[in-house]
Every structure is written in C-alpha cells, then in structure tokens.
C-alpha cells in the first residue's frame, strides 16, 4: 500500500490491535474522532470502546495507568496528544516505567508504548513544537524511537508494541503527511536500536533523525556529494556500530537535530565518536541544531528550524577543513 507516516501509524495500530487482543489504545480524543492527527482513525469502530478509549485531560494518569496495565498482562498503547504536554508525565516515565523491571528483578515488566507527535513547523501554538528526545533518552530503561519514513513508522511501531520494555515513540508530525511510499500491507517489524544508512558515500557522514532527516537529505542532494547519510531511528538504545563504522570510513561527520544544541543528543553522538573513533577524524565534528531557546511561536519558527542551507554550510565547512 501507498502510505504517509500518519497512515502507516494508523495501519500499524490496526495490525497489532488485530494480532494481540491484549493491546489497548487510549489518550485524549483518540476514540470518538480518531485523534487530532487521525492516527487512531477507525480503531474504535473496529475494536470497540473497551479497547479504544478517550481519556480525561490527564497526562499523568494516561502514562501512569498504561504502566499499571502493562504490569498486568496488557499491551497499552497510550497517546500524548503533543509531546509538549508530556512533561507532567515525565515523572511516571522516570519514577515507574523505566525502572520497574530493574526494581523487581524482572518480576514485573512494562511492555507499553507511549506515542507522541513532536517537533516544530506546523504553525501551532506554544508547547506544540518541542523536541526533547535527549531528555527522554537520558532515562535509563526507557527506549526512545523516532521513525522518519512511513516504512519505519509502521515497522518500528509494531516492534515497539511487541517490545517487552517501555518505548517512547516520537512521531515527526511535520512530515506526517508530506511524504508517501510503498509499504507492505501485512504486519512487519523494523528493529529498534538499529540505525539505517539512507545513502552511502565516502566523503563524510551525516547523522540525523525524525523530520530533520528530510532536510538533511535535501542538503546532501543540493551539494551533490558522496556522503553516508545515517537515519538514527532510535535514540536509545543507541546503535554505536553503524555510526563508528561510517565515521571510521569517512573521517568527517555532521550531526543535524532540531532540538536545542546544548545537551542535545548530538552531544552524545560526538562523545561516542570521541570514545572510539577520535583518531579517524580529519575534521572537527559539526552540529547543526536548533538554538538554545524555546521554539518560537509561528511567526518566527522557520528561523529556528535547521533548514537545508544551514546544513549545507556545515557540510561544506566540514569537507573543506
């Protein structure tokens, strides 16, 4: 089938609801109207109101009750309407979800998924644009997944639902509908914790994820260079091998992310390269990121987002070094 990311997410939910009757989908506005982005369209009609529920406006209870359900044999798939509203529930992720297996030495586990759209560029209101993946990735015990294509959105969401541990599934809403590709009709999985090499080349390595993947690919295309373009796909656990193999080959690396620079996930990638591939570097690693400010409101947000020209400049400088 030909699908956008949002359709792929919807399709994955239909597949897994069908495959496993322990799955339950809930969140704000997900049942009756099929979600503000229509990610959960027709789930209520197909699987009924016991398994597809609209919840009160309670992020803490959405995530917290997903944790409780998960310890009780269910496979909750909770939606947080925008990732900007996840912070109240950060407590539940840190205090409970991430450490229940560890705390009980495996007696209790939390096989839940929290799906949430993230990122800027849709001209929404305040708190509708952030990218805090590094903060979530910093929590040991929590998996953080960010697909950038319809194919991965479906395959990785199915993997996340089947995963025995809690997964925060961050969906790049800016590209929810802007790209389409052929994806298999049936259920399939894409592994969590493995990066994808989108394009191969010897000149340098460019690493990105989520919506910024597409700005990165555009920049690489505009420059007609031979680059390894890596789609990280999973923030945690990190696929170190793919990154290190590539950087050892190219000796140059540019990292692109939408989140603020300081403490962003790019810093972790740089440290990873420093640990195991420092001597292969022919140029300093460069980062193209959002600025260290909150994402501006809609009139200025385009200045914040790392658009292809900024990425191109960093690539040119890294190549020329």
């Amino acid at each position: 089938m030909n699908a956008t990311i949002i359709q792929a997410v919807n399709d994955a939910l239909h597949e897994e609801m069908d495959n496993d009757d322990q799955t339950i989908v809930f969140g704000q506005d997900v049942a009756e109207s099929g979600g503000v982005f229509r990610a959960t369209e027709d789930l209520k009609e197909t699987f009924g109101t016991e398994r597809v529920l609209d919840t009160p406006l309670s992020e803490i209870a959405i995530v917290g009750s997903a944790i409780g359900l998960a310890t009780h044999g269910f496979r909750p798939i909770a939606e947080i309407q925008f990732s900007g509203f996840l912070p109240p529930a950060f407590d539940q992720l840190v205090t409970n979800a991430s450490r229940i297996r560890w705390r009980t030495h495996g007696e209790l586990t939390v096989p839940m998924v929290v799906r949430t759209p993230y990122g800027a560029g849709v001209r929404a209101l305040e708190h509708h644009s952030e990218s805090l993946e590094a903060a979530y990735g910093h929590v040991p015990g929590l998996k953080v997944v960010i697909p950038s294509t319809p194919h991965d959105a479906k395959g990785m969401l199915i993997s996340a639902i089947r995963d025995p541990d809690p997964v925060l599934f961050m969906e790049p809403k800016h590209v929810y509908r802007s790209l389409r590709e052929e994806i298999p009709e049936k259920a399939y999985t894409e592994p969590l914790g493995e990066a994808a090499v989108r394009q191969e080349g010897d000149d340098l390595t460019v690493i990105s994820w989520g919506a910024m993947m597409h700005n990165t690919l555009e920049a690489v295309e505009n420059l007609s260079i031979n680059a390894d373009v890596i789609d990280l796909r999973t923030i945690s656990p990190l696929d170190r091998e793919t990154i290190l193999d590539s950087v050892k080959k190219t000796g140059r690396c540019v990292i692109v992310h939408e989140a603020a620079k300081t403490g962003g996930f790019g810093a972790e990638l740089m440290a990873t390269i420093n640990d195991d591939a420092l001597m292969y570097l022919e140029a300093p690693i460069s980062r193209v990121t959002g600025f260290d400010v909150p994402v501006p409101l809609l009139s200025m947000e385009d200045y914040y987002i790392p658009h292809p020209p900024r990425i191109e400049k960093a690539i040119e400088e890294t190549l020329a070094y």
């Binding site: 620079k261 300081t262 600025f291 260290d292 400010v293 909150p294 501006p296 200025m300």
Partner: peptide, 21 residues
Amino acid sequence: RGVEEMFAYLYEEMPPELERQ
C-alpha cells in the same frame, strides 16, 4: 522582526554561548 527576538529575553544576562549562536 529581526532574528534577535528569538534570543532576547531568555535570561536577564545572555550567556556567552547564546551570544555566539
């Protein structure tokens, strides 16, 4: 507005790294 609007007002005194950005 100019892009300086994005950077102003975050702190009373802008940290050096933000100035650089």
